[in-house]
Design a binder for these strands. Structure first.
Lengths: 195, 195
DNA sequence: AGCGACATGTAATACGTTACATGATTGG
DNA sequence: CCAATCATGTAACGTATTACATGTCGCT
């Protein structure tokens, strides 16, 4: 039931509406948690019943009213007590690796195309994360204590995407190692390093 | 519904019992797919109904009979047709990153302890993967075409664990950067490089 | 004597995804 | 005029987790 914790973690920074939370899950912090708006609205209702969040309705004209959720002291305590509790690494589920594992069933070029497609996705994500880093964390030396934590989660996103890109390159090299089975050699790709 | 594909991918290499599959999901290929035995038995029953796998009962004395599942030609085709279809990167869900994000709520040393615990887990996983690499893929130059694919998924596991360890180190350095809040400095840790 | 590995399954519950539903505003 | 963004929700369905259930063998 760690979706609840993820929501409270975002609320611990500042108040959000359900809509905001859904957008953040999809964007900036999406590399460590994902949820649809339906899950979030349901969970927020539960959390309010349990007294861990409270909401205020903000009347708006022209557009639907907002329900702004904020953490209660009980919610904050509950989240803080959870942090030191031992937890396990999350489950890994990657379609692309299933495809790679079964790669012998298709021509290498077919798999290579799908790997290239994913490489592009990861390059784009990485660029996004670099933008966020530049904007919010330009100088690691002058962090406030509070900023450290957001920075560190972002670092994980950057490392993860970098690592994916490197892996894709390794796959593409090996797949094209037998040229007459894998189509033309891949175009030059700039190497990626964590920065 | 990619659990079905993951099962078929394992069966494409060689036949397994449900029990075997559950063990493999938990062990060697666990870094790209996880499933409990209940999920697997249910899915195998469905796949058999759909004609994608077939099973033979192997009578045993003393222990329960085995049901050995193998891929049918239809199952093989279905899996092969799925591989070139575009798919998205899997969802990320990491409790540890939620904890890091909300890290300001607890003393840095409390978070550091949990990070250290995870570091140990990832070091152990990495060691396991290195053993597998040494045992099954000692020399990348002499691969059969079929072996490449298992090797590449293993490489991803190795990279992933290495990256986790590096990230944990980065966190621990930043958390102990303000010594009077973060307890004693961490012991020396050998640096990790992908090998 | 008790635990863990082997081997398969059912049942109940929790969680996640997809589709449906509403309705004003802004920009192309 | 159509699509996207803002903003919230319900209902149905599918997937995943947890607990329960059974029974032998080999080890300590």
């Amino acid at each position: 039931m760690a979706l609840a914790h993820a929501i409270l973690a975002l609320l611990s920074d500042h108040s959000h509406t359900g809509y905001d939370l859904a957008r953040d899950f999809d964007g900036s912090v999406g590399f460590f948690w994902k949820a649809t708006h339906q899950q979030i609205y349901r969970e927020l209702a539960d959390l309010e019943e349990q007294g861990r969040v409270r909401s205020e309705v903000m009347l708006q004209e022209g557009r639907p009213n907002k329900k702004i959720y904020h953490l209660t002291p009980e919610g904050r305590d509950w989240l803080a007590r959870w942090i030191p509790e031992p937890c396990e690494p999350g489950p890994n589920r990657e379609d692309l690796l299933v495809k790679t594992f079964a790669g012998a069933l298709v021509p290498p070029a077919a798999l290579a195309r799908e790997i290239e497609r994913h490489r592009v996705i990861h390059v784009q994500k990485l660029a996004q994360y670099h933008v966020i880093q530049q904007k919010y964390f330009p100088d690691p030396a002058v962090f406030t204590l509070k900023d450290r934590y957001g920075y560190l989660t972002l670092r994980r996103g950057i490392r993860q995407e970098t690592e994916w890109i490197d892996w894709c390159d390794e796959v593409l090299v090996l797949l094209t190692a037998v040229p007459n089975e894998a189509g033309p050699p891949p175009e030059e790709r700039p190497s990626v390093t964590v920065q």
